[in-house]
Nucleic acid binder design. Sequence first.
DNA 1: CTGAAAGCGCTAACAT
DNA 2: ATGTTAGCGCTTTCAG
Lengths: 334, 334
Amino acid sequence: MTSTDVAAHVGVSQATVARAFSSPEKVAPATRKRVEAAAAELGYVPNAIARSLKSQRTNIIAAVVPSVGEYWQSVLTAFSKQLADRRQQLLLFSFSDPAQLEDVLTSLAQYRVDGVILASASIDAGRLARVGSQQLPLVAFNQPAASGLVPSVSVDNDLGMRRLAAHVVENGARRVAYIGGVAATSTDQTRYRGAAQALAQAGIACPYTESGGWAYEHGYGAARELVELGELPDAIMVAGDELAFGVIDALEDRGVSVPTEVMVTGFDGLPQASWAGYDLTTLTQPVELLVEQAIALLLGPSEPEPADIVVAGELRLGRTTKSSSIFESRKDHG
Amino acid sequence: MTSTDVAAHVGVSQATVARAFSSPEKVAPATRKRVEAAAAELGYVPNAIARSLKSQRTNIIAAVVPSVGEYWQSVLTAFSKQLADRRQQLLLFSFSDPAQLEDVLTSLAQYRVDGVILASASIDAGRLARVGSQQLPLVAFNQPAASGLVPSVSVDNDLGMRRLAAHVVENGARRVAYIGGVAATSTDQTRYRGAAQALAQAGIACPYTESGGWAYEHGYGAARELVELGELPDAIMVAGDELAFGVIDALEDRGVSVPTEVMVTGFDGLPQASWAGYDLTTLTQPVELLVEQAIALLLGPSEPEPADIVVAGELRLGRTTKSSSIFESRKDHG
DNA sequence: CTGAAAGCGCTAACAT
DNA sequence: ATGTTAGCGCTTTCAG
């Protein structure tokens, strides 16, 4: 079914049918009705592919997202929703291994999408710069390393970790351990730096342990090792919520109670952090807002130099740090 | 950058450049090298949009998926991965409200995708039939109601619930309650029927409570009401894992211990079900396998009549039902 | 093996 | 307000 078929059926030119759909105001109401009726009858729908070829706009935004991780899934959902509101579609490119990225970016280039959201901590600066040098509108999502190279939107990792650190210190923590995700990523580095610096100001050290990933298992494993080494700190600051869930479960499996013996903080503000089972103290990322900004950067007029938007998150106080009284009584006795 | 530009640069015809990319074997090795070199230098990548216009294949599969729910996110990830392996892209259409479905299906039609995955419990049979009558290859994912109307792939809800029911009965449950999701959906109905029938065979009733959704909060709310009504059963069978997490947390928040006082079962086998914090007894859906079958149905030769594939899940025994001893001792005393 | 030429279905001047 | 016409970048006969 093409516009030509409909045109023949109605007895107008193909161009009129096309206009009836792409700019209805340019066609007489009566003609438009007849065209619409015929289209409905014949089951005609304009061909977006053909339209794109001519107009050079696809109304498709590509999202390059890691295929795993609770956090990315929530981000994806937000993008998909907000893009739908703007009549854009989301073409999904997920990858599990940074090595696949090359392929992904190649097949992406073929689709002449209107813009790309690059959401992954594990893209190195070199590649980023190369992608950024293309024509294609691009925005890096939550990748501190992208700052300056390409337009980017991130949560304020530094501020967020400082606030979490301040909170555990207020709650009496004197010895703090930090469990990171993947040390090579800029997100991990930025978060750790924020925590370490804030704690240093309170005269507290913050030894870093790399868990090697961002998933539950990684957190679980890292915390188990910490327990086995003995010498548990007052608080464990964890680089991400999913990791933190693993940390909490590992601790409690080994009889270490949270927060009575050890406080735990996360980062991200996943829905599950609010679930009663964990009720995690964390830094909630304003995902909707971040996504909104990213889309604005992508679809809006391109700035002369790459904009870097940093949005503050919100401290969520859960029961994994509610232990001021415990520490105060400890101090009384110590 | 077009094939014509590259052709001019190399000194061959545009057709040769196009062939060098779409069917390299039809072009002399020497020419191909020169074309490839020029393309790399000029940054040329074939335009998939233009290709699709001519070839009538987009290599894009659309997925229509609810925008919320842990389960759908895991399904989406599986699709995205497996489609990438087959060099297909995933165009995502998410919707939060069944009312939006109409719009979604319309914009979907414009993109002339090669196939559609319809994954949502809340599409009524009428609409399904209408969509199915189009040209477009289609597969319904985990929608028992679709069976017979359009090709479909689902987990064996009935068998799964029967096995869970058998398990709780073996573990000594004599009074069982069922917490459903959305009663109007075929998934909910099929699961409940399986549980109710299996329990009936053991002479056990299975009163149904609708929680009104599939999210954590719905499970939490439904369980809270159950507790407030008093009269707790030996086991609560829940229609989905995410609901079950809410149920467990609601019970424990009110001092009802799981599984000592009440056993809980889920359905889906989300990653979180294996997390130590919940360690839920559930029916694990073989998501990878389901997705594989769905893709095969979509991309393979179309059958004369709609195929309905039903795949059995796997029983996962967690600690939310490990309580045989408790019940046995109760029986001793009762 | 390579080139010439005709479209795929639509948009956007331009003309009427 | 509508029709005519020329492409968008590619694939694909058909010749050579």
